[in-house]
Amino acid sequence: MSAIPVTIGRRVPVSAASADVGVSAAAGVAAPAATIGAPLVDTHGRVHRDLRISLTDRCSLRCTYCMPEQGNEWLAKSSIVSLDEIVRIARVAAADGITTFRLTGGEPLLRADIVEVVRRLAAITGPGGRPVEIAMTTNGIRLAELLPGLVDAGLDRLNISIDTLRRDRFHALTRRDRLDDVLAGIAAAAASGLRPVKLNAVAMRDVNDDELVDLVEFATGHDAQMRFIEQMPLDAGHTWDRSRMVTQDEILATLRGRWTLTPVPGRGGAPAARWLLDGGPHSVGVIASVTAPFCGDCDRLRLTADGQLRNCLFSATEYDLLPILRGGGEDGQVDGMLRSCVHGKLPGHAINDPSFLQPVRGMNAIGG
């Protein structure tokens, strides 16, 4: 079975090699051979510990910065990775040093077997019997209903998306009148034992930038951490406009009108830089992927719902695991594909480079 990186858009194989060596489409060089259990280290010295697993490309909302309202081309059901396939990949990844599995989508709570996905992933251990951490990013719809089962199954952490607290804006942004369901999900998370609970908002000029303080106050009232995200070029319609993006500096300037902000050191590979609010205990985070990229510390890989490995949100190359999973391949070949993907990782995403090209896939198809 060959390790085949694929250029997205044309979906054309660009190179192949034995699965225990691997080839980087981005670098054009063979990855060093390794056995299951060796750390996943790229050519820039970054050790990978986080695998984001997209369970579906479908979503119960149609956020304007992510998906068109109609005309979406969904992944074929036959191409969606099964629970057994997810667990198989995760076991190899955990043996290679992955310590966190984050479940994303689309909307992961739309997956019918979501509780069992969490249960089986939570049972995986890494070297020396080390437990893994199971996190989830969700829009919160169905969370109030499903959270008790998810916690019982082993869910450790939650990120919930909420871009506005105003019903009219929520409807306009998501094209769905589901704010009450999201608020119920946040309330359920606040009442649970899961900590930290993080609330995510994409900051958009003349859309919700007048709600930044309100969102932080809402989050602290629910013992949650608010995190603002600079809008990135990941919409399926490719309509991203840098001028509509609210920058990290603008976000912090607005918040400093209400709180004293103190930087929290020791960010590591976390995507959000954090600041204490009036000395703590509450904090706010900003994910500034455009104006303050954190690529040098990135420790994440992504698995799409149709079995493609990605080493960056903005990558033009994917590494297809389905032929291995469904063609009688061995775990060593899964490991080889993980290493090929890691080996092909570039130093950064190059959003600010004039030659940057937006990924063909939208965020819902890549996985958050």
Score class of each variant (00 low, 15 high):
Leu194Asp: 01
Cys298Arg: 06
Asp210Lys: 14
Ser283Arg: 14
Ser60Gln: 14
Pro354Met: 02
Pro32Gln: 03
Ser78Gly: 12
Leu183Gln: 09
Val47Arg: 14
Asp299Glu: 11
Asn352Gly: 15
Arg62Gln: 06
Val14Trp: 05
Ala34Arg: 10
Arg242Val: 13
Leu277Gln: 04
Glu330Ile: 02
Ala365Trp: 13
Val264Trp: 13
Leu346Gly: 06
Met232Cys: 15
Val132Ala: 03
Gln225Phe: 02
Arg142Met: 14
Leu277Ser: 01
Thr239Gly: 01
Ile366Ser: 05
Arg167Cys: 00
Thr174His: 00
Ala25Gln: 01
Arg58Asn: 07
Asp57Phe: 08
Glu330Asn: 03
Ala316Trp: 00
Glu85Ile: 02
Ala201Pro: 01
Thr304Lys: 07
Ala188Asn: 00
Arg142Cys: 09
Thr220Trp: 08
His44Trp: 11
Cys63Asp: 00
Cys63Pro: 04
Pro293Gly: 12
Asn200Gly: 00
Thr262Ser: 11
Val360Ala: 15
Gly280Ile: 06
Val47Asp: 03
Met67Leu: 08
Leu325Tyr: 05
Ala17Gln: 10
Thr100Cys: 05
Leu40Gln: 10
Val41Glu: 13
Gln70Gly: 09
Arg91Thr: 06
Arg49Thr: 15
Lys77Phe: 08
Asp168Thr: 07
Asp209Cys: 14
Ala191Ile: 05
Asp168Met: 02
Met67Cys: 07
Leu346Pro: 04
Arg267Leu: 05
Val151Asp: 02
Ala350Asp: 13
Asp235Ser: 12
Val216His: 06
Pro265Met: 09
Pro347Asp: 09
Asn72Cys: 09
Arg46Trp: 07
Thr260Val: 12
Ser340Ala: 15
Ala93Pro: 02
Leu346Trp: 15
